[in-house]
Design a protein around this nucleic acid. Structure first.
Lengths: 122, 122
DNA sequence: GATATTCATAACTTAATGGTTATATATAAG
DNA sequence: CTTATATATAACCATTAAGTTATGAATATC
């Protein structure tokens, strides 16, 4: 079986979605999108302790969403967005359904067209 | 502020991602993608109790991912995928980062910068 | 080498999650 | 009207999660 096309094992999706379910972690990811940062810098914007941020970073790293790079006495966190693709691919399976209202709209339009056509045939 | 373009409040994203973080719930959603189903039918494929499934359905409903329709003595669960769009939109912010080649390029550039800086300090 | 800085880890608390069994409620069927 | 079926809810248990404070380990600085 082709690794490239294989579906991600569900445990990986578990970790990715769980990591994304926390607003602090999403903020951290957003910050990292603009470049790597040491832990201290990631603590600043939040009203939580440094160990709390370190724990969030561990959750993100376990999900594969950040990598760590020792840099002197600090440890830079890098965004590693690749696993998000698995999450995005999962959601894409439902795209057809979240356009359902468009489908409904389509039905309404079809009905209107139908009515219009009937009128035209009067 | 335009409701249509407003970003989803973070609590909504919390619930959506958390709902998606459980493999049983993802299986339920996949089943519902092929049409509404009563609770009993959703229990069958799993080795867990009916109340457990009812609780999963409540989590999914709280996230807006399923709606319930009483139908006689059963309660049909319908997929309601619209909120997934918010999750998908969130992930889309990172698309530029999850391309593997861009990641590698980024790493290479970082390395070059690192080397350059070291040289500058010589 | 002593001290400061940066971060991780340990130990703990509280709350949330996912499961269970037992039971209640509502509708359907006899 | 009684009984069966479908589902929800309650009460409980074990595990995980998110936070805390205290402390340890590694690196930088004086």
């Amino acid at each position: 079986m082709n690794i490239i096309e294989s579906k991600p094992d569900t445990a990986a999706l578990d970790r990715i979605f769980a990591a994304l379910a926390d607003p602090t972690r999403r903020e951290i990811l957003r910050r990292l999108a603009s470049g790597p940062a040491p832990v201290g810098e990631l603590v600043e914007p939040f009203d939580i302790s440094q160990p709390a941020v370190s724990k969030h970073l561990r959750v993100l790293a376990d999900a594969g969403l950040v990598s760590r790079e020792p840099r002197g006495q600090q440890r830079l966190a890098h965004l590693s967005a690749a696993p998000m693709r698995a999450a995005s691919d999962y959601l894409a399976e439902f795209k057809a359904h979240w356009d359902a209202r468009l489908d409904q709209l389509g039905a309404v339009l079809a009905e209107l067209v139908s009515i219009t056509e009937r009128k035209e045939h009067d």
